[in-house]
Design a protein around this nucleic acid. Structure first.
Lengths: 206, 206
DNA sequence: CGCAGGATTGATGAAGTTCAAGTTACGTGG
DNA sequence: CCACGTAACTTGAACTTCATCAATCCTGCG
């Protein structure tokens, strides 16, 4: 919670579409997201795409592996980030507090990815979609008279590549959730959650 | 590579079926696998199962999140492990070398899990199965006159829960790989890879 | 030798993909 | 400010793949 008392951290603003790093790049920085949304992506040789994660405020992205990035990162919604040097990882003494925060974030990331495994491997399309929204709800849901509102700056294709589905199936799942009275769509990028409880139920499978 | 020069590390032998920790347990130890095979598992409320990872020699399992384990770990094949205290994570100064090794392992784990994402989300049954074998090949493949041999101490159900498939589909995929002349089955637990190149092709999707 | 549990194979059906045709939303230029 | 054009989103229909249900086949072990 206290601002890290070290001079190496730099704040930066990122415009939509900007690429922070590519797969294989030497990893110089780790990014701590203050606002906006980032996207972590991997590609197969055959060109198939998997969105590993969306980075929301509070997240860190860019954990290096053997000094390199293993995924691509770009900006989905204009973002403010704090840029940390990866050196803080390798060398605890450089900034002990920051080092601890980075290690904690990496461990939390592992745990979070394990959840995602269950989703990718063991849930139906409607469950995946509900789980996706349910995960965003406490993080970016903004209250409104008709229920919490979630803004989705990413495309349907992004969501599909995150959930291991096609854009069409994501659309159909949204439509079904709407037909069930669980959500309401205000344009494609804005979801109003009418029945959060029901959303949770659908997300957690039955 | 050099044995960690610290007195806190303890070697232990683990029998098949033994449980190292449950989901939610306070995380006291991290395990470095010397031999044998461990299994990391998560369950959903509805009882569905997802095998997060199989731990092979060289792997570390038991990374804590906020001081707790987030998955269950048990022994698939009798194993020898080195037990490290999780304290080495929180407190770099305790054992700087070990701390560095743990952090590196955690980062490698993140990268490895990202590969798994692609597999779960974007590959067909036969591709998943081929990729599973292909990943094991360089790690546990033992040369033989008729080709590298992989031993699979885990059940078909375990493999299915790892790949996000059913046991039947895993069986059929193995059968198809056999029909294609890519592998040969010597009992259910032993796979001979006749055509490693082809296996790689199938794994990487086309 | 027979039994039990896992592995395999077969038949059927449902879920999701693919292909194709609208529909909506949005930015651009007149 | 409106018309247009493009890209994204949505819906529909046919098809593929994988799950499900069920029977049979190993294989290791008492």
């Amino acid at each position: 919670m206290p601002a890290p008392p070290e001079g190496r951290a730099v704040k930066r603003h990122l415009a939509e579409g900007q690429v922070l790093f590519h797969e294989g790049d030497h990893a110089h920085f780790i990014y701590e997201i203050l606002s906006g949304v980032l996207r972590l992506t991997r590609y197969t040789e055959a060109g198939r795409r998997q969105v590993i994660a969306f980075g929301y405020p509070g997240d860190m992205v860019g954990f290096p592996d053997h000094g390199r990035h293993r995924a691509e990162c770009d900006v989905v919604a204009p973002a403010d980030v704090v840029v940390h040097r990866t050196g803080a990882f390798d060398n605890p003494a450089m900034d002990l507090a920051l080092h601890g925060r980075l290690v904690s974030a990496a461990l939390a990331e592992i745990s979070c990815m394990q959840d995602h495994f269950v989703m990718l491997g063991r849930k139906s399309a409607i469950e995946k979609t509900a789980a996706f929204l349910a995960a965003l709800l406490p993080r970016v849901g903004v209250g409104s008279p008709s229920g919490p509102v979630i803004s989705l700056p990413m495309s349907r294709a992004d969501i599909a590549d995150f959930l291991g589905l096609t854009t069409e199936t994501v659309c159909r799942s949204f439509s079904r959730l709407r037909a069930l009275g669980v959500i309401q769509l205000r344009g494609a990028q804005t979801v109003v959650v009418r029945d959060p409880g029901r959303l949770l139920e659908l997300a957690e499978s039955d």
